[in-house]
């Protein structure tokens, strides 16, 4: 195998592994659920991203054809990570906060979890 390709793949693998580990360690180290939420949504996403880049370079080099599966997995994880984070944050807020402990909204209506949306 070409040395340059091997170096690039190895760098992506090491970077991905480090970020994945940092994401999981942050899940244990940080205090409070809402702080822990920051770690996996960011670090783990880039961790998997690094592994995906490495594997797509590796298999493109091995077989000579580009595989779209890695692109699809990367796209899917990038699109869904914010949504899961948002849902988990809502679960946390519902269990641990009420109107008084959250900052006020700038408009006339309260936060969506407490108030109904205005009828249009």
């Amino acid at each position: 195998m070409d040395l340059i390709v091997e170096i690039i793949v190895s760098l992506c693998l090491v970077g991905g592994g480090v970020f994945g580990l940092v994401g999981s360690v942050g899940l244990v180290k940080l205090r409070g659920c809402i702080q822990r939420l920051h770690a996996p949504t960011k670090a783990a996403t880039l961790g998997v991203g690094g592994v995906l880049i490495a594997s797509s370079i590796h298999f493109t080099y091995l077989t000579g054809t580009l595989s779209f599966h890695q692109v699809l997995i990367a796209l899917f994880i990038l699109l869904t990570a914010p949504i899961t984070a948002n849902f988990i944050a809502k679960v946390y807020i519902q269990a641990n906060h009420d109107r008084e402990t959250l900052p006020d909204t700038t408009g006339a209506h309260g936060w969506a979890i407490y108030d109904k949306p205005p009828v249009q």
Partner: peptide, 11 residues
């Protein structure tokens, strides 16, 4: 929290 457990499962 339940939120912690869901987050752990997702990770």
């Amino acid at each position: 929290d339940p939120a912690d457990r869901i987050l752990a499962l997702d990770t």
